[in-house]
């Protein structure tokens, strides 16, 4: 036990906290570099491309053209003024409208249905585990697969949905759900709600389970009507969890691509911002134009997130301070 430590040099060393901070920096560096390479840098390049006339086949041949991809005033020889660019493109505004419509409606139904499913799962009954297992299935199925499955079920001639509806006497002949302009959005919404409600239900359920049981017991002893219990106790208490879930879903819905691409290809009624951007980027060889559109989508989501954080003062870091 003797002669330890007395002769060691003292003072010039890092204390524990400094040592840990140095380690933390080393640990974080690879992740930050990786995220920079796959997120920040590509994002900056996309934004840069949106100000050029780069084409898919010649990525480095683009020239700076300012805001022309967004909005450009052009005077025709006849003297008439026309506006060009994404912001003057009816197809773009149609996509914006589709995206917003899709996001709001799908998230609304997913929240309501998710809450109902969560309330069911929060009750104690035999076979609860089976129900939870069952609702996980739509979540686990790949989006593309569910799109194909539903496309088949919604098939105009041989689809089971039409068959059911005809047998129930709701419709007389089969509807081309995914192809018809009138019903394409409905079809997309149905599939998305089917696929994503389980996720909402699980998040709601987690929120519900954080409510202490004795609150309900107290309410029951006081003879409060169950409906009133829901509105006055359950809903206010799950609201924070619900809001986080809604925001996550909303951000997810705003960028929807795969379901629509596969279920209703080339349908004007469902084309969203992501779909139209990719179409221009890759399929139509309007690389820079598509970049401008995806930049706009990014800007919209960024504004949305900042507003939300600012208004809600959501503590997204999950830390207890402040």
């Amino acid at each position: 036990m003797a002669n330890r430590n007395n002769s060691r040099p003292i003072g010039r060393e890092l204390d524990l906290e400094a040592q840990r901070r140095r380690a933390a920096f080393l640990f974080l560096a690879p992740m930050i570099i990786a995220l920079f390479c796959v997120a920040a840098w590509p994002l900056l390049r996309t934004i840069y491309f949106s100000f050029t006339n780069t084409s898919l086949t010649d990525l480095y041949g683009g020239e700076w053209i300012g805001f022309d991809n967004y909005l450009r005033r052009r005077e025709l020889s006849s003297g008439r003024v026309v506006w060009r660019g994404t912001l003057a493109d009816p197809a773009w505004w149609n996509a914006v409208w589709n995206t917003v419509r899709f996001s709001v409606i799908s998230v609304f139904f997913e929240t309501v249905l998710g809450l109902i499913v969560a309330l069911v799962l929060n009750a104690e009954f035999k076979g609860r585990g089976w129900v939870r297992a069952a609702i996980l299935i739509p979540w686990a199925i790949p989006t593309i697969v569910s799109a194909k499955m539903w496309a088949w079920m919604l098939n105009d001639q041989f689809g089971i949905i039409n068959d059911i509806f005809i047998k129930l006497g709701l419709i007389e002949r089969g509807i081309a759900w995914t192809a018809s302009i009138d019903t394409a959005m409905t079809a997309v919404l149905v599939v998305d709600i089917w696929k994503t409600t389980p996720f909402m239900a699980l998040l709601c359920l987690a929120g519900l389970q954080m409510i202490p049981r004795d609150i309900y017991e107290a309410a029951r002893i006081d003879g409060v009507h169950p409906v009133k219990v829901f509105w006055k106790i359950t809903l206010p208490l799950v609201r924070p969890a619900l809001m986080v879930a809604v925001i996550f879903r909303m951000l997810d819905a705003l960028r929807i691509f795969d379901l629509i691409y596969v279920l209703t290809p080339n349908s004007k009624a469902t084309k969203t911002m992501s779909v139209i951007s990719r179409e221009n980027l890759i399929d139509f060889d309007k690389f820079a134009y598509g970049s401008a559109q995806s930049t706009l989508l990014f800007a919209i989501i960024a504004v949305f997130v900042s507003l939300y954080i600012w208004l809600g003062r959501v503590n997204l870091s999950g830390e207890g301070n402040r």
């Binding site: 330890r4 430590n5 007395n6 060691r8 003292i10 003072g11 010039r12 060393e13 890092l14 204390d15 524990l16 906290e17 040592q19």
Partner: peptide
């Protein structure tokens, strides 16, 4: 113990300063 760092002042073990010595080296 050294699990927290000292803001000011001195901590010595047998006369040697321990402020910046990591816990595992303090004995």
């Amino acid at each position: 113990s050294g699990l927290e760092s000292i803001t000011s002042g001195e901590l010595t073990f047998d006369g040697s300063l321990m402020n910046n010595v990591v816990p595992s080296k303090r004995g």
